[in-house]
Design a protein around this nucleic acid. Structure first.
Length: 274
DNA sequence: ATACGCCCCTGGTGGC
DNA sequence: TGCCACCAGGGGCGTA
């Protein structure tokens, strides 16, 4: 159930395994996930992976045929690396198997099937229906307080719901939204358009901080994970508020509350976050 | 344009 | 031990 830091970790873990390798075969074990698997996947045999990038929570596998394979892990997707000679039979939820020229394989496993795989001409990537409306990357320099202030202007929805809108800024999921609002000491129930310049100036660095910290943690755990079982991107986090309803606030010792916003759980400290 | 609810799907967990 | 309700970190899309 990856958020941006997990996807970034998967991206970094997959790179040394896949970049420079050719796709020897792609095995599909069902018709598709959230969207049908593109027919053209079958034609990728022999294409070389030239790089792996991330946009929002999408993994982008750059190929030397001018195309990019887009992979989204959804809520439960995993990429599992199997070394040459140690490739098991695909299991129930291993929907796509990428076999590499070096003899290894990468399994895309997704129990809930909210993930997706698509194929796009790299040159036309920006115009892809999933990408054309995306906001800035949260860790990019272009994501500034001025930028968020403008995006929030006039919005009547709760600020925490708004920060998860991919048109405002990409990749801020439910966990890190909660953590960022706690870090910035802002009540997640506040209307987005009501946040002051000063609050926005706290929120933007808070978003960057919680994401950077999680990515750093993922990176440090990467080697162990690959060695353990090939599964990428899942590591132990420590959260200040997420999932801690009823527990003491790490700052004031008060009780962390849980509410529902936009159908998702929000955790916050009413004493610290105003 | 904005806001909101729905839906895709399976598995883990906790209560009874 | 079994059953079952409930919950889960995403995000596109339809409707008002």
């Amino acid at each position: 159930m990856p958020e941006l830091p997990e996807v970034e970790t998967v991206c970094r873990g997959l790179s040394p395994v896949m970049v420079g390798q050719k796709i020897a075969a792609i095995d599909l074990h069902r018709a598709g996930l959230r969207i049908p698997f593109p027919k053209a996947l079958a034609k990728l045999r022999g294409a070389k992976v030239t790089g792996i990038a991330r946009r929002a929570k999408y993994l982008l596998l750059r190929l030397d045929n001018g195309q990019t394979m887009i992979v989204h892990l959804g809520m439960s997707g995993r990429m599992v690396i199997h070394a040459k000679g140690k490739i098991p039979e695909p299991g129930k939820h291993d929907h796509m198997v990428l076999r590499l020229s070096g003899g290894g394989a990468v399994f895309f496993n997704d129990a809930r099937r909210f993930g997706l795989v698509d194929l796009v001409e790299t040159a036309q990537e920006e115009a892809h229906r999933f990408f054309k409306a995306l906001g800035p990357e949260p860790l990019a320099r272009s994501f500034t307080p001025a930028c968020l202030l403008q995006a929030f202007a006039g919005k009547k929805i709760a600020a925490k719901v708004a920060i998860m809108d991919q048109r405002v800024v990409v990749g801020v999921g439910n966990i890190y939204a909660a953590e960022a609002f706690f870090d910035a000491r802002i009540d997640p129930r506040r209307k987005a358009g009501d946040l002051t310049t000063g609050e926005i100036a706290r929120l933007v660095p808070a978003v960057k901080k919680v994401l950077r910290r999680a990515i750093a943690k993922g990176g440090s755990s990467l080697r162990d994970y690959v060695q353990a079982d090939g599964e990428l991107g899942y590591f132990q986090h420590h959260f200040a508020v997420y999932g801690r309803n009823g527990a003491p606030c790490p700052s004031c010792g008060g009780i962390i509350h849980k509410i529902v916003q936009g159908g998702r759980s929000t955790f916050f400290c009413p004493k610290c976050q105003k």
